[in-house]
Every structure is written in structure tokens, then in C-alpha cells.
Lab assay of single mutants.
Amino acid sequence: EDNEEPDPLPDNWEMAYTEKGEVYFIDHNTKTTSWLDPRLAKKAK
């Protein structure tokens, strides 16, 4: 069984939802937002 907990978001990142219910990510370090999960970006490298 694969019950892995997702990795926590990096420091100062926040997950948020648009009015349409779409997930996006806020990077408080750089005051930017991203559609890409920063956790996935790390694994892709």
C-alpha cells in the first residue's frame, strides 16, 4: 500500500484556491504565485 504523506510545502509557501477552485501556490519569499507545485519542481530535477 502506498500511503505516502505528501511532502510539506517549502518554507514560506502557501497553497491557495482561486474563485473557481483551482489550486495555486504563493511564494511569500519572492511575493509571487505559481500554478506549479514547488514540491513537484524539486522532484523533476
Rank of each mutant, 00 (worst) to 15 (best):
T18V: 00
T32G: 05
L36F: 07
M15P: 06
D37R: 08
Y17E: 04
T32F: 00
F25S: 01
K31V: 04
S34E: 01
A41F: 09
L36D: 07
T18I: 00
N3R: 15
P38V: 00
D37E: 02
Y24P: 00
F25Q: 07
K43V: 13
T33R: 03
D37P: 04
E1M: 10
Y24V: 02
M15N: 02
L40P: 14
E19K: 11
K20G: 12
T30W: 03
G21P: 01
I26Q: 06
K45R: 15
E22M: 06
D37I: 01
K20W: 06
F25L: 00
K42M: 12
P10Q: 04
G21A: 07
S34Y: 05
L40W: 08
T33D: 00
E22V: 06
N3Y: 13
E14D: 09
T30S: 15
D2P: 12
K42R: 13
T30G: 07
R39E: 02
I26W: 01
E19T: 13
T30D: 06
W13C: 07
D11K: 11
P10S: 04
D7A: 15
S34G: 04
K42C: 15
D27K: 00
R39G: 04
Y17K: 10
G21C: 06
D11W: 10
R39P: 02
K45W: 12
D37H: 02
T33P: 00
E14M: 05
K43L: 09
L40Q: 13
N29L: 10
M15V: 08
G21W: 02
E1D: 11
N3H: 14
T32W: 06
Y24N: 00
L40V: 14
W13S: 03
W35C: 03
Y17L: 13
T32R: 06
T32V: 09
P10Y: 03
N3W: 14
D37F: 00
E22S: 07
K45E: 11
Y17N: 11
R39A: 03
P6I: 09
H28P: 02
E4G: 15
D27R: 01
K20I: 09
E22N: 06
E1H: 09
T32S: 10
K20A: 11
I26E: 02
I26D: 00
N3A: 09
R39V: 03
N12L: 08
E1W: 03
R39I: 02
E22R: 04
T33A: 04
K20T: 10
K31I: 03
A16C: 06
P8A: 11
K42A: 15
K45G: 14
F25P: 00
D27A: 01
D37M: 03
P10L: 04
Y17C: 12
L36R: 10
T30R: 07
E19Y: 06
D37T: 01
W13V: 06
E4M: 15
T32P: 00
F25G: 01
E1I: 00
D37N: 07
E19I: 09
R39K: 04
D7E: 12
E14T: 08
M15W: 07
P8E: 10
A44W: 09
Y17F: 11
T18E: 02
N12D: 08
P8T: 11
E19A: 14
A44V: 12
P6N: 11
N3E: 08
Y17M: 10
H28R: 07
E1S: 08
T30A: 09
D27N: 08
D11M: 11
T33E: 02
N3S: 13
N3V: 11
K20V: 10
T32M: 10
I26G: 00
N3K: 13
L40S: 11
K43A: 14
E1L: 11
D11Q: 15
V23P: 11
N3T: 13
Y17A: 11
E22L: 06
P8H: 09
E4L: 13
K42Y: 11
D7Q: 14
E19Q: 13
D11P: 09
N29T: 11
A44L: 09
E1G: 12
E1Y: 15
G21D: 08
W35V: 04
N29S: 12
V23Q: 15
P10W: 04
H28V: 04
M15R: 09
K31S: 09
E4A: 13
L36I: 15
K31H: 15
A16S: 12
P6M: 13
A16I: 03
E14F: 01
T18S: 10
E4S: 14
L36C: 15
H28S: 05
Y17I: 13
P10T: 04
N29P: 01
D7L: 14
W35S: 04
